[in-house]
Design a protein around this nucleic acid. Structure first.
Lengths: 172, 172
DNA sequence: GCCACGTCTGCGAAATCCGCAATCCACGAC
DNA sequence: GTCGTGGATTGCGGATTTCGCAGACGTGGC
């Protein structure tokens, strides 16, 4: 045992706390392997993960805790909102004049907005919105988002059917 | 104790196995409350969840197992791919002539594609792509997606910065 | 009435989680 | 070279959680 990722251990382990230039922690191979295990099953026992990545149960537990504290990953239940009673979802493309980031922050503050990303292309921001019904969706897009000062225009894509939703990159 | 959601228990519990017309299971208030707990912390103990929703530990465990088996939810670690070494991500809007669903299936089959949704609006499909670098991204978009028969056109939005990623609707 | 079915509860055994002290190792100071 | 420091890992015992199962309960079909 202790066969999988052992080779790079001593060389890499310090990296797990080093910071790259944008402030996000640099991850070594062992932490990536741990994340991958938890992407397959977020409730997998620490001991099983340890056996897979070549670490003791306590060490895995410590690393997982740190990854959670640092915000590198979160362990959560994910659902298809359509299954769970949120009948209207949409992706909204936003064009901004002025400070894009402050608009993105404003969108982030809205509870109906699940996902915000700044992009290059014909939209400055893409935001995913989850609502209970059409009225709610209309309200969020027209009254709240378009009302933000600096929002030049928006385009909406109402979801018809979610086909895929994965969190298992790495497992290729 | 046993105070939170008790009132609707006997009336609703059978619904947890009933099917709505599109084949997705109908969820009662207790299951929703359980999901909500696990959206806050995917590793929360069953006993703690039980206390919060007014059910025994064993009952919670049974329900969670069923929700997982039915595919209503999954408990997984989620990360910002940019933090974890995938340096290029993009949302791709696709326009299709002919059968949209078969194109969506083809996209779903690609391992680089994390997210596929069929939409109403100026795109038929939105797909999120996670790649290691520019070459990889270019390859996926130009060689693989545009090559699919029936794809009329695509538009790409390369991610610059992920601002928000939540799974806590319901917690409003 | 009575059986079948699905769900919930209670409980004991096994496994897991948790905190802590000791150890190991790389690295810098002197 | 030696010593000290800090971070990571390990090994453990006790507390907690998970797991499987048998029994109880309520509802609907016959």
């Amino acid at each position: 045992m202790h066969s999988e990722v052992v080779a790079s251990r001593n060389a890499d382990q310090r990296d797990s706390s080093r910071e790259s230039r944008n402030g996000t922690p640099q991850l070594d191979a062992v932490s990536l392997a741990i994340i991958q295990q938890l992407q397959e099953d977020g409730r997998r026992p620490y001991a099983a993960i340890g056996k897979a990545v070549g670490l003791s149960e306590a060490a895995v537990r410590q690393r997982v805790q740190k990854l959670l504290d640092q915000g590198v990953m979160q362990i959560v239940a994910v659902t298809d909102p359509l299954t769970v009673g949120f009948r209207r979802q949409a992706m909204v493309g936003v064009n901004v004049e002025g400070d894009v980031e402050s608009i993105a922050d404003a969108l982030t503050a809205m509870s109906e907005v699940e996902y915000v990303v700044m992009t290059a292309g014909s939209f400055d921001i893409l935001a995913e919105i989850v609502c209970e019904d059409d009225d709610h969706l209309l309200d969020v897009i027209n009254k709240r988002i378009r009302a933000l000062p600096g929002v030049r225009s928006t385009e909406s894509f109402v979801y018809l059917k979610l086909k895929k939703q994965t969190y298992m990159w790495g497992t290729r």
